[in-house]
């Protein structure tokens, strides 16, 4: 009897998949909110839409404690070095959501001061259209990112880049060409 219970309560998986499963339900977002998209980001975190249902409620204002940067709003040329520095301060594995028209393309702000899409200077995993996007759209982006992490994440965060290089798929938001030599394993 005891032996039978034991068998029914055990399942086997691979370490990578177990790690990815844990990882995708515990995003720690770093809110880089500079404009009205930031308000929608806050609404997504508040009780009505409740980002906690997707395990991503622990917003950290220190990049060193976060693994998902949500860039919500326009980024000006004076802010971009700050944004890059924050991205570099985040530990691997890490992901980036570009939320809204401004972060993704500059939006209506086609002026000397506004960066025309953060993906010119940073790797971006998911783009969210909208001006500003509704919370449902951001939640959709988080679900999509969860799928991406389950599919492509590895125990070491850099692995997903290597896999993409092997498969020849375009790397979203990065300048790497398909088929380039693999980075050295670390």
């Amino acid at each position: 009897m005891a032996q039978h219970d034991w068998l029914e309560n055990v399942f086997l998986t691979r370490l990578n998949e177990a790690a990815n499963w844990c990882r995708k339900y515990s995003f720690w977002p770093m809110p880089f909110a500079t404009a009205c998209c930031g308000i929608e980001l806050m609404a997504t975190a508040a009780s009505r839409h409740d980002i906690a249902r997707f395990g991503a409620e622990v917003f950290r204002f220190s990049p060193r404690q976060a693994d998902l940067m949500i860039v919500a709003g326009r980024v000006v040329m004076k802010m971009l070095p700050v944004l890059q520095r924050i991205w570099l301060q985040m530990p691997e594995p890490k992901w980036c959501i570009s939320m809204g028209a401004c972060a993704s393309s500059g939006g209506v702000f086609d002026t000397y001061a506004v960066v025309q899409g953060i993906d010119r200077f940073l790797p971006v995993d998911i783009y969210v259209p909208g001006c500003p996007p509704r919370p449902e759209q951001l939640i959709r982006a988080i679900i999509d990112l969860q799928e991406m992490v389950q599919r492509e994440g590895r125990v070491r965060g850099l692995e997903r880049l290597r896999q993409r290089a092997r498969t020849g798929l375009p790397v979203l938001g990065a300048s790497e060409q398909p088929g380039r030599p693999e980075p050295q394993r670390n």
Partner: peptide, 18 residues
């Protein structure tokens, strides 16, 4: 209005570098 390239004059971070 669109400046003289100031908004594009930054280094580019890739997955590999960051």
């Amino acid at each position: 209005l669109r400046g003289r390239g100031e908004r594009h004059n930054f280094r580019r971070l890739t997955r590999e570098q960051s």
